[in-house]
Design a protein around this nucleic acid. Structure first.
Length: 600
RNA sequence: CGGGGCGUGGCGCAGUCCGGUAGCGCACCUGCUUUGGGAGCAGGGAGUCGGAGGUUCAAAUCCUCUCGCCCCGACCA
C-alpha cells in the first residue's frame, strides 16, 4: 500500500482542477522554510482548549475566521491534501467515481423529503435576487437522488458509486473543540445506487473495507460501532470512532467484539440491593432530586423510579420511567416514539399534571399521558417515586400498580454494565466520530421518485447508501492520538512534510552545502522535504520541527567536520549518526520503514 | 436557547473593584555580539482599550444597550 515515490502534491486532482501551474517552481519556494508561510506560535492561544486545536494553531496549520469556521494555512492544507489523496485512492479502488456537487441548492428539493423542516436551523437558507429560496447543503442525499432520478433508467446501469470531497455547511448550535465540531467543513461523501438489498449490502461492505484501509493508512486507531442513523434515516448504520478524551461521543465496547454508540447501546445493568418496604406516602419536604430523595428516605438510588416528561414533535406528552441510578437515552426514546422528542418545560409539566418537577410519578397519571417504563426496572421490586403531590413521595409500590404502561428499552448504558452477548463488563470509551456509513434503503428514492426498470420492466425505487468521512477530523484525531509534550507526531502518510533538513548554522558553508545536496537528492527521489534554511538559532529550529511534527529530521551541524550527520525520528525521539555517504540510504530506509508500519 | 467567563499593539496578559488620559512579556524592525534545544545588549515601530449611547471637568475603568469569542448544558452526521 506504500505510495510510489512520485506521489505527494503532483498526484492531486485538486491541483489539476484548480491550479494548473508549474509545480516544480512552487516546490522550490514552499520547501524552503525561510520562504514558507508557517506561522508557529510559542504561546497557547487563549481560545483553544483541546490538544488538537492548540497544536494546529501553534503549528501554523489553521486560523479561525469566526466560530466554527477555519482557514487552512499551507501546512494544514498539505496534510488535508494527503488525506484526500488516500481517500481518493481507496474510493477509486472500490469502483468509486468522483463527482462534484453544488452546495447551493433549491429549498424545494429539500421539501420533497421533508428535510426542509427536519434540518431545522442547521441548514442555512437564503434567497437569490429573484426571491427563489435556496439552502447551503449540509449533506447531499437529495442532490444525488435528484441526479439519479434524472439519469438512471435501467437495472443494467446499477450499481453506481459516486463520491465527492466537498464543503458542507451546518450551522451547529455550538461549534467547539477547534476543528472537531465546525460549521463549514470538508467531507468526503459517497452514495451508492443499487437495484436491490443484496447489492446494497455488498456496496455497504465494500465501503466498510475501504474505510478501514483509509483509516489504517492514516495511522489511526479506531472502533467500528453500531450507531443511530439520526437525521439521515435509513435501515442501519455504523460509525468509525477514534478514541480520544476530546471526543464528543461515548461508545461501549466489549472484548468479545461488541461495540455500540452509547446512544443506542444495550447492556445488562448492575443489580440493586432492594430494601423491602410497605406501601406508604411519605412527607419529603423540598426533596426533589434523586440524590436528595435517596438520602432522605435512606433507599439506594436504584430503588427510586425516575419519571421524566417529554414532548414529541407532534405535541404528544410521554412519561419515561427509569431506575433512579440510570440515565435516559433520548435517541432510544425517539426510536420508541417514532419521532423527535424534547424535555418538557417546567411550566408544561405543571400544566399537564398539576405537579411540579421533583414530585412526579407514574401512579395515577395514565389518563394524562402515555407511560413508558425502561425494561431495566424490575417488575417485582418495590420502588419509591413522586406522589404527584408537592412535598410527598410514595414508597413500596410496584410496576403492577401502574394500570397501563409499555415496557421498552430507554436507558443509557452505564459504567459497570455487562455485555449482552458474553456477560463480561463493558468498557465505555470517549471517541471522535471520523466516519459514518448508512444503509438508506429507499428513504430518499421513494419520495423523490428515483426509480429504475428491473428485468421484468417494473419500476422500482433505487436502494441507496450514504457514506461520510470528516477530512479535517482525521487530522485532529491523528494529532489527538499521537501528539506529545513537544508537539505533533504525524504518521508519515499524512504529514505536511516527510523530512525536514535542519542545517544548524546557515552561515557555515560546509554545513549548507551538505544540507542543500541532501535536500536536492531527496527532492529528486520524490520525497516531500522541507529545508530549514532560516538564519535562526538551532533551538528555535528543533522546537519548530518537533512542533509541526515532521516524522524525519536530518540534522546537519558540527558532525560535518568528521563526515557525520544525524537522523532524528520524531515519533521515538531517537537520533542516529550516519556518515554523509550513507545519509541518503539511511533516510530512505527510515522513510520506507515508516510507510510500511502504516500498511497492512 | 439556558448558565458561566472573556474582549486592552500580531500573541499571552496586567490595569477595571477605588475614574486622572495605557503598561509588561513574547513577537516585529535596525545595529553589534552570538549559533546543538525557543540567545544577549542597545535603539525603534506598533493599541479606535470590541462597538454605540450615557454620566462626569475627565471613562479602558461607572451606567445602559449591542456585537463577538470561549466553556458547561441543551442540540447535533
Amino acid at each position: 500500500m506504500k505510495p510510489q515515490k512520485t506521489k505527494g502534491l503532483l498526484k492531486h486532482g485538486f491541483m489539476y482542477i484548480f491550479q494548473p501551474r508549474n509545480l516544480h517552481k512552487m516546490k522550490e519556494t514552499i520547501m524552503l522554510w525561510s520562504k514558507a508561510f508557517i506561522p508557529t506560535l510559542k504561546e497557547v492561544p487563549a481560545d483553544a482548549q483541546v490538544k488538537s486545536h492548540i497544536l494546529m494553531l501553534r503549528a501554523g496549520m489553521i486560523r479561525q475566521l469566526s466560530a466554527g469556521v477555519y482557514t487552512y494555512l499551507p501546512l494544514g492544507w498539505r496534510s488535508m491534501l494527503r488525506v484526500m489523496d488516500i481517500i481518493r485512492d481507496e474510493m477509486d479502488e472500490i469502483g468509486g467515481q468522483e463527482v462534484f456537487l453544488p452546495s447551493t441548492t433549491p429549498l424545494e428539493l429539500w421539501a420533497e423529503t421533508g428535510r426542509d423542516v427536519g434540518m431545522g436551523d442547521i441548514m442555512t437558507r437564503f434567497k437569490d435576487r429573484r426571491g427563489t429560496e435556496l439552502a447551503l447543503a449540509p449533506t447531499h442525499e437529495e442532490v444525488i437522488t435528484d441526479l439519479a432520478r434524472g439519469e438512471i433508467r435501467s437495472y443494467k446501469e446499477l450499481p453506481q458509486t459516486w463520491y465527492q470531497i466537498q464543503n458542507k455547511f451546518r450551522d451547529e448550535p455550538r461549534p467547539r473543540s477547534g476543528i472537531l465540531r465546525v460549521r463549514e467543513f470538508l467531507m468526503k461523501d459517497s452514495y451508492t445506487l443499487c437495484a436491490d438489498e443484496a447489492q446494497l449490502h455488498e456496496a455497504y461492505k465494500l465501503h466498510e473495507k475501504a474505510y478501514r484501509r483509509i483509516f489504517e493508512r492514516c495511522g489511526l486507531q479506531y472502533f467500528v460501532v453500531g450507531a443511530s442513523s439520526g437525521m439521515m434515516g435509513g435501515t442501519g448504520s455504523e460509525e468509525f470512532m477514534v478514541p480520544s478524551e476530546s471526543g464528543e461521543d461515548i461508545i461501549a465496547t466489549c472484548e468479545c467484539g461488541f461495540a455500540q454508540n452509547l446512544e443506542i447501546a444495550e447492556s445488562f445493568p448492575t443489580s440493586v440491593e432492594w430494601v423491602s418496604c410497605e406501601k406508604a406516602k411519605v412527607h419529603t419536604p423540598e426533596q426533589r432530586t434523586i440524590e436528595q430523595v435517596s438520602g432522605f428516605l435512606k433507599l439506594p438510588q436504584g430503588q427510586l423510579l425516575k419519571s421524566l416528561i417529554y414532548i414529541t414533535q407532534s405535541g404528544k406528552a410521554v412519561m419515561a420511567c427509569l431506575r433512579g441510578d440510570h440515565e435516559l437515552s433520548e435517541e432510544k426514546l425517539q426510536a420508541v416514539c417514532g419521532e423527535k422528542v424534547r424535555p418538557a418545560e417546567a411550566e408544561e409539566v405543571l400544566k399537564l399534571t398539576g405537579v411540579p418537577i421533583g414530585f412526579l410519578g407514574p401512579i395515577g397519571l395514565n389518563a394524562k399521558l402515555e407511560i413508558l417504563v425502561d425494561r431495566a426496572v424490575d417488575s417485582e421490586a418495590p420502588f419509591a417515586t413522586g406522589a404527584n403531590e408537592v412535598d410527598y413521595h410514595i414508597v413500596g409500590y410496584k410496576l403492577t400498580d401502574i394500570s397501563e404502561y409499555k415496557k421498552v428499552d430507554l436507558r443509557m448504558v452505564a459504567e459497570g454494565d455487562t455485555c449482552i452477548h458474553c456477560g463480561k463488563p463493558l468498557n465505555l470509551i470517549r471517541t471522535i466520530e471520523i466516519g459514518h456509513i448508512f444503509k438508506l434503503g429507499t428513504k430518499y428514492s421513494k419520495p423523490m421518485g428515483a426509480t429504475f426498470l428491473d428485468e421484468e420492466g417494473a419500476a422500482r425505487p433505487i436502494q441507496m447508501g450514504s457514506y461520510g468521512i470528516g477530512v479535517g477530523r482525521i487530522l485532529a484525531a491523528a494529532i489527538e492520538l499521537s501528539a506529545d509534550g513537544d508537539g505533533i507526531r504525524w504518521p508519515i502518510t499524512i504529514a505536511p512534510f516527510e523530512v525536514v533538513i535542519t542545517p544548524v548554522n546557515v552561515a557555515d558553508e560546509e554545513v549548507m552545502s551538505v544540507a542543500t545536496a541532501i535536500y536536492e537528492e531527496l527532492l529528486d527521489e520524490g520525497i516531500d522535504v522541507l529545508l530549514d534554511d532560516r538564519d535562526a538559532r538551532p533551538g528555535v529550529k528543533f522546537k519548530d520541527a518537533d512542533l509541526i511534527g515532521v516524522p524525519i529530521r536530518v540534522t546537519i551541524g558540527k558532525g560535518v567536520k568528521n563526515g557525520v550527520i544525524e537522523i532524528y525520528e520524531r515519533q521515538t525521539k531517537t537520533t542516529t549518526e550516519v556518515s554523509i555517504e550513507d545519509a541518503m540510504d539511511s533516510i530512505i530506509d527510515l522513510w520506507d520503514r515508516l510507510f510500511e508500519e502504516l500498511s497492512e
